[in-house]
Simulated assay, not measured.
Amino acid sequence: MKKLFIMLLTAFVFAVVNPTKSEAKVMYDGAEVVKGQTGKMTFKKDIKVYKKNPNGSFDSLVVKRNNFFKTYDIEKYDGKTFYQMGQYRVQATDLVVFKEVPIEIRSSFYNDPIYININRDNGMGSYGYYFLRYQLTFLDNGYVDHCFSDGDEGTDCDRYLGTDFKITERIEREYGMRYEISKNAEGKGVPLKESKTEKIMEKGSIVFAKGLEINGYLNVGIEGNDQEYFWVPVNLLKPVGDK
């Protein structure tokens, strides 16, 4: 009994001296913000939203007026904007009230953030093009500038909305590391799932890393072809040894 008491006392003292560390919550506009969140939205009246199942069928959910919902990925094309609310996709309309989380707060969740342009309608920069933090200037009005030297004409800037960017972690991978593709994979021209598939990469193909992983995609080259490179889902790549 005495031995048990000593063990419990030791555990208590350790817990007091070394309390469990918990990361501070990130708050904005009276609510907690989480990693990957782009904003929050409410609806002006009860409305039905939908999600598409893998078999092509749809499930619906009725969301109540004035209830807050976190939004994550955003798609912009053909003059339309779509918000991802969990598994449900919602088109921006007059019934949707969206409030953006400032890009500075969104960036704070990443050690080495990279910014991917997700606006297909933005003619100033190609869809899927990415920027490093030092290449961008965050403005107080929610806009973001990318400025660059225009030769003898000085400096020129392109201006984006903060919501034009998907933020993700920049990860360096060993250049030349060889991988086998574990199942047929869609080779993308940019590291975005929604982007056009440029090439079907066949199961068993051997590729090599070109050094950068973004948004769950690794930039790879094809052995024997120095001209082609694609973005392939990391979870479909299996490391293999040297030749």
Rank of each mutant, 00 (worst) to 15 (best):
residue 70 K to P: 14
residue 88 Y to T: 14
residue 82 F to P: 02
residue 24 A to K: 14
residue 142 G to T: 06
residue 22 S to H: 13
residue 56 G to W: 14
residue 74 I to C: 00
residue 25 K to H: 02
residue 144 V to A: 04
residue 53 N to K: 09
residue 19 P to M: 03
residue 133 R to L: 14
residue 48 K to I: 15
residue 71 T to V: 05
residue 130 Y to D: 01
residue 137 T to F: 12
residue 145 D to F: 01
residue 112 D to M: 09
residue 18 N to T: 12
residue 142 G to Y: 03
residue 17 V to W: 09
residue 134 Y to W: 07
residue 70 K to E: 14
residue 143 Y to Q: 04
residue 36 G to P: 00
residue 54 P to C: 14
residue 31 A to Y: 07
residue 26 V to F: 02
residue 127 Y to T: 02
residue 88 Y to I: 12
residue 138 F to C: 00
residue 89 R to T: 13
residue 60 S to G: 13
residue 93 T to P: 08
residue 27 M to T: 15
residue 39 G to R: 06
residue 67 N to P: 01
residue 112 D to G: 01
residue 139 L to G: 01
residue 41 M to W: 06
residue 99 K to T: 12
residue 125 G to S: 12
residue 50 Y to F: 12
residue 83 Y to K: 00
residue 59 D to Y: 03
residue 31 A to F: 10
residue 62 V to R: 01
residue 85 M to N: 13
residue 33 V to T: 08
residue 33 V to L: 07
residue 128 G to V: 07
residue 111 N to Q: 06
residue 131 F to V: 00
residue 123 G to R: 14
residue 96 V to T: 13
residue 140 D to V: 07
residue 79 G to E: 08
residue 144 V to C: 03
residue 51 K to F: 08
residue 93 T to W: 09
residue 86 G to R: 04
residue 21 K to N: 11
residue 95 L to T: 06
residue 76 K to D: 03
residue 111 N to D: 11
residue 25 K to Y: 07
residue 126 S to P: 06
residue 105 I to Y: 11
residue 130 Y to P: 01
residue 77 Y to V: 09
residue 35 K to R: 06
residue 70 K to M: 09
residue 64 K to L: 05
residue 107 S to V: 04
residue 114 I to G: 04
residue 123 G to T: 14
residue 63 V to W: 15
residue 126 S to I: 11
residue 42 T to A: 10
residue 99 K to P: 03
residue 134 Y to C: 08
residue 36 G to H: 00
residue 58 F to K: 14
residue 104 E to N: 08
residue 109 F to T: 02
residue 89 R to W: 15
residue 123 G to K: 15
residue 144 V to I: 14
residue 69 F to I: 09
residue 78 D to V: 12
residue 109 F to I: 03
residue 76 K to T: 04
residue 46 D to C: 02
residue 81 T to Q: 11
residue 118 I to S: 00
residue 87 Q to L: 11
residue 112 D to A: 12
residue 102 P to V: 00
residue 83 Y to C: 00
residue 64 K to S: 10
residue 124 M to D: 13
residue 40 K to G: 12
residue 126 S to H: 08
residue 127 Y to M: 02
residue 29 D to I: 04
residue 102 P to Q: 02
residue 97 V to T: 11
residue 52 K to W: 04
residue 49 V to M: 05
residue 18 N to S: 12
residue 95 L to F: 08
residue 132 L to F: 06
residue 109 F to R: 00
residue 128 G to Y: 06
residue 66 N to A: 13
residue 67 N to E: 12
residue 36 G to E: 01
residue 106 R to Y: 07
residue 135 Q to F: 11
residue 121 D to F: 10
residue 81 T to V: 13
residue 141 N to M: 06
residue 48 K to P: 06
residue 142 G to Q: 07
residue 54 P to K: 12
residue 57 S to E: 13
residue 107 S to L: 05
residue 77 Y to Q: 12
residue 74 I to S: 00
residue 116 I to C: 05
residue 31 A to P: 06
residue 18 N to G: 08
residue 37 Q to C: 01
residue 95 L to I: 10
residue 60 S to P: 05
residue 47 I to S: 01
